[in-house]
Design a protein around this nucleic acid. Structure first.
Lengths: 250, 250
DNA sequence: TTCCCCCGTTATGTATACAATCACGACGAT
DNA sequence: ATCGTCGTGATTGTATACATAACGGGGGAA
C-alpha cells in the first residue's frame, strides 16, 4: 500500500465524510444497507481511522444508524418521517423568526434578506420557470432561510435548525425540487414568496407572533406539496434525497 | 504499558464518552479549556482511538467545540444560551404534544403518564419538600417528559428533542434543581404539575392546539424561574450544569 | 531592551497492526 | 431430513506507531 494517494489539501476525515454523504444521497448506498468500513476505505481513499470518524459524524447527523452488533447502516425514512421533519424545521424557524422580531433587528441586518427576496421575485417573473431558474431559486431560498435563522442571534437555536436541516429532505432544496415537478409549481412558489415577504414585514414591525405563525404556515404548505408530489411520482427522480425513502418492495 | 486495565464489560468508546461527559458537567474541565487527548487517555483508561471517537460524539452533542488549529475545547454558554435552550426544548415538546393529540393515543398509552402524575402529586404533598424528595421529583419529571415525547410517535422529532435535552441545562433536572434553590420552589412545582395535568387532558380530548400551548407555557415558566434563580446565586452550586456557564472574570 | 527568527517539544491527524466478536456454513447426531 | 453445534472467515473494536503541524522558548541582532 505504498502508493496511497494522499490529498493533503483537506483533512482526510472531512474528505471521507463528504464522499460517504454523496454516496448515500446519490443512492449508491441503499437505505438499510450495511456500510463496510473496508469498502468505504477503498471508495474514499482515506484510511480506517478517518473513515470511522466520518461514520460517527454521519450517524450523529442522522444519515446512518448504528447496528447493535457493530458497524453502521444507511438509515431508511418513511414518508411520514419526511413530512414530520419539514414541520419540525418550520416550527424551529418560526421560533427563530419570533426571536428576531422580539429582540429587534436593524435595517442593515434585514438588507441581505430583502436582496434575496428581490432576486427571487426576478426569477418568478419568468413564466413558465426554467430548470436553470429552479436551481437558482433553490440556492436563493436556502440563503433566505439561513439568513433568517441567523437573525434570531441564538446560537443554540441556529445549531438545532442546522441539524434539523441535515435531514436533507427537510431542507428547502428538497421540497422545492419536489415542487418543481408539479404543474402547480409556479403558483406554489408565488405563495411561498408571499410568506417570505410577510415574515420580513412582521420582523420589521416587531410582531413576533405573526412572524412565527407565517413560518409555520410556510412549512405546512411545504408538507402539503410534498404529499402532492409523492402522489404523482413521475418526476421524483429530480429529488436525490428521496433515495433515503424506504420502498415497500425492497 | 503492559498492565492497562481493560474493562471489557462495555465498549471503550462509551466508557470514555461517559467519563468525559462527567468531567465536563462536574466542572473538572472548565468552559473554554482545551481538552488534551493524552490527558483524557489517562483519566478515562481508554486508548486514543476510542477517546477520539468520544470527543467527536461530544462535539456533535454540543458539549465540545472543535478548535480550528486542531483538538477540542469545552464549550462555554451564556445565560441567554441557556434560557433559549429551555424555550427551544419547550417548543419541540409542544409540537410533540400536538402530534400526540392530533394523531390520537390510546388510554393504555397514557397510563404511564398518569402514573408519573400521581407519583409527583404524592411527593408534592410534603410541605416543605425534602431534598430527597427533590431527587425523586427530578427523576419522575424527566420520565414524564420522555414519555410525553414518545407519544408523538415521530422518530425525527423524538431524536431532535433528545438532542435539545443534551444541552444539560435545558433538561428538566437542570431547571428543577435551580427551582429547588428558591423559596418559591413549592409553588413553582405545583404550577408545573398543573401543566402536566392539562397537557394529558388536552391529549385525551384531542385538542392539539391546547396541548401545544401548555407545553410552551411550561417552558416559559422554567425560563422565568431560571432567571430568578440566577439572580439569587446563593444555591446555584446545586446545579452542576452551571459549570458550563462562562463567567466574566475568567 | 526588544523584536524576530529558528529550533525543539508537544499534540494532533493518520495509518496500520492486533484482538475479539459475529456471521455463516459444514458436519454430525438424533 | 432437520436441528444443533463447532469451526472458520470476515469485520469491527482497540491499541499503538508514525508523520506533520502548531506552540513556546531561547538566542541573536538591531
Amino acid at each position: 500500500m505504498a502508493e496511497r494517494e494522499v490529498d493533503r489539501s483537506i483533512s482526510q476525515t472531512v474528505k471521507a465524510q463528504l464522499a460517504l454523504r454523496d454516496q448515500i444521497l446519490s443512492g449508491a448506498l441503499r437505505p438499510g444497507e450495511r456500510i463496510s468500513e473496508l469498502q468505504a476505505v477503498e471508495t474514499t481513499g482515506a484510511s480506517r481511522t478517518p473513515v470511522r470518524m466520518a461514520l460517527v459524524r454521519l450517524e450523529e447527523e442522522g444519515l446512518l444508524e448504528a447496528i447493535p452488533s457493530g458497524g453502521f447502516m444507511v438509515k431508511a425514512f418513511s414518508e411520514r418521517d419526511i413530512s414530520d421533519s419539514i414541520e419540525l424545521r418550520g416550527t424551529l424557524e418560526g421560533l427563530a423568526a419570533r426571536f428576531a422580531a422580539e429582540r429587534g433587528v436593524s435595517a442593515r441586518e434585514l438588507e441581505p434578506l430583502k436582496e434575496c427576496l428581490a432576486a427571487i421575485d426576478e426569477l418568478l417573473r419568468q413564466v413558465p420557470i426554467s430548470v436553470d431558474a429552479f436551481s437558482s431559486y433553490v440556492a436563493l431560498n436556502a440563503r433566505f432561510h439561513a439568513q433568517l435563522t441567523e437573525l434570531s442571534r441564538s446560537p443554540p437555536l441556529i445549531r438545532q435548525i442546522d441539524r434539523a436541516s441535515a435531514l436533507p429532505f427537510a431542507s428547502p432544496s428538497g421540497f422545492v425540487m419536489a415542487q418543481s415537478a408539479l404543474p402547480e409549481a409556479q403558483q406554489i412558489l408565488i405563495i411561498a414568496q408571499e410568506h417570505h415577504r410577510v415574515v420580513i414585514d412582521a420582523i420589521e414591525n416587531r410582531e413576533g407572533a405573526r412572524a412565527e405563525a407565517v413560518m409555520r404556515e410556510h412549512a405546512r404548505l411545504a408538507v402539503r406539496n410534498l404529499r402532492l408530489a409523492l402522489r404523482n411520482r413521475t418526476h421524483l427522480d429530480l429529488l436525490p434525497a428521496l433515495a433515503l425513502i424506504k420502498t415497500a418492495t425492497d
